[in-house]
Design a protein around this nucleic acid. Structure first.
Lengths: 262, 262
DNA sequence: AAAAAGTTCAAACGAGTGTTTGAAACAAGC
DNA sequence: GCTTGTTTCAAACACTCGTTTGAACTTTTT
């Protein structure tokens, strides 16, 4: 490949201690991930960026370390040197963005609760505390953030045990806080039903963020709306809020629903 | 492994043309999939059964043909001989059960519409036309059916292009029929909104059927309920029906929801 | 009974995998 | 300047992967 065109310049000139971010950074921003080395010292970040995109695109098993390191323009061994193993690299991709996002979610929920002064929050308010940090992530890092949300949605459905256990740990605290909030917002709903509906909400959110391209086309959704995460979540939120407030189906209701006879 | 303990008996004795199913079959029913050869002629079915379970458990990429054929008690080359390639085997696992299920769904919807005699159906009726065939599948083949539903839910989120294109083709007709039905059931809802909400319904259904074990535990759901698909869908259906009937969020609503200020 | 078609088998093929290694290149401390 | 400690590099290691092959076996047809 055309990888090591200019491997390493004599950099004595640039060694001025705390330098303003050098030109190499700008180059690495302009060029796509699949391009040249650019060697700005931040090999770890380059690997994480490439891994984020490629794991999203092909999944964990189908993405090789050679593919990642080539796309990042670094040596193959760098991945194991910096992260230890492929699994640890995968987890590092998540913790980099998932931890801040979930902390944002809990902080926003706490701010809403403080502002409400003891009054229970509305479902819409709680849902927005889950969505806004995701939206922020989707917008902040213009490309990387969106990729990460799609990766996250897909990881939810991944059967690999280490992925499931890892996500469970990452989400445990946040889920607990939001279940409590929904429980107070819906005092007449049995606690068990609250757990189920929170599960449905998380599922719909992650599934929607995963962006199943092909199935969207089938649903006759406008192509220009497919990648508009803000619009997407604004359509999903009313749907979920109404579902959360739905009356619990009685035994007779269910009997009626599921009887095949008219 | 303990695979070929007795490879092939001198079978001249048994060559009595159409033999009653030999004892080896009984063994293969008693023993789990991971057991002995049993060679009952139905190599294809044995491979499909093992593939269904293992694809569900480990995903497409992480499941090797050697794992499948060993579990099925057949020779490695049998997979390629009967199905051509690993991808075609994967698709065969789906078509075996997905085609009948989707046909059942459309037939049930048509029966409901005929019984209603021109009147539009309720959302609950349409949802039950989607759910009942899935429930039937979960119950009919006691183990295989449930495995397949979980496999299906996970395949929805798989990034592999050939899986996405395959599922798009499999679902195209059914989705079209149900979108039309929901459009008539919700005449005041804009058509574009109907498409989105159908997308949400499909997502919630497949995600729920995928059964994300670890995350369920986090949600504090009773362990004995986790594998009860009937109970699960009876909780999901009211949630979705209410979401489908939710009023479309106005611009002001959304502004209010997503403003961080109180 | 002979021939044809269908199926199973052990063995191998070439390619790709995650990971390790030891030397080379670099940066920082004294 | 020399010596640490860190990072990069090409090459290799030990495997596993999906697929193919050609001979042996079974079943069906003639």
């Amino acid at each position: 490949m055309s990888q090591p065109v200019v491997r390493r310049l004599p950099v004595e000139v640039v060694s001025s201690s705390t330098g303003a971010i050098p030109a190499t950074i700008a180059i690495s921003v302009v060029g796509k991930l699949t391009d040249k080395p650019a060697d700005a010292g931040d090999t770890k970040r380059r690997i994480l960026d490439a891994a984020e995109e490629l794991f999203m695109e092909h999944g964990f098993e189908a993405t090789s370390l050679r593919l990642i390191t080539t796309a990042a323009g670094v040596n193959l061994a760098a991945a194991n040197y910096h992260f230890g193993s492929k699994e640890e690299l995968f987890q590092a991709v998540f913790t980099r963005r998932l931890d801040p996002m979930n902390n944002d979610r809990m902080a926003l929920l706490a701010a809403y609760e403080a502002a409400a002064g003891g009054e229970p929050l509305t479902c819409e308010r709680i849902i927005s505390a889950m969505f806004i940090p995701a939206l922020k992530l989707a917008r902040d890092h213009e490309q990387g953030g969106k990729n990460f949300l799609r990766l996250l949605g897909r990881a939810y459905a991944d059967p690999a045990p280490f992925i499931r256990e890892f996500l469970s740990r990452q989400y445990a605290e946040m889920i607990g806080r939001f279940r409590a909030a929904f429980g107070e917002a819906l005092p007449r709903l049995p606690r068990e039903e609250v757990s189920w509906r929170l599960h449905f909400v998380m599922g719909a959110l992650s599934y929607t963020l995963a962006g199943s391209d092909g199935l969207k086309l089938i649903s006759q959704i406008q192509p220009e709306d497919v990648d508009n995460d803000e619009l997407l979540l604004k359509r999903l939120a009313p749907f979920l809020a109404a579902g959360l407030r739905a009356p619990v189906g009685t035994a007779q209701d269910q009997q009626q629903w599921f009887s095949e006879s008219d």
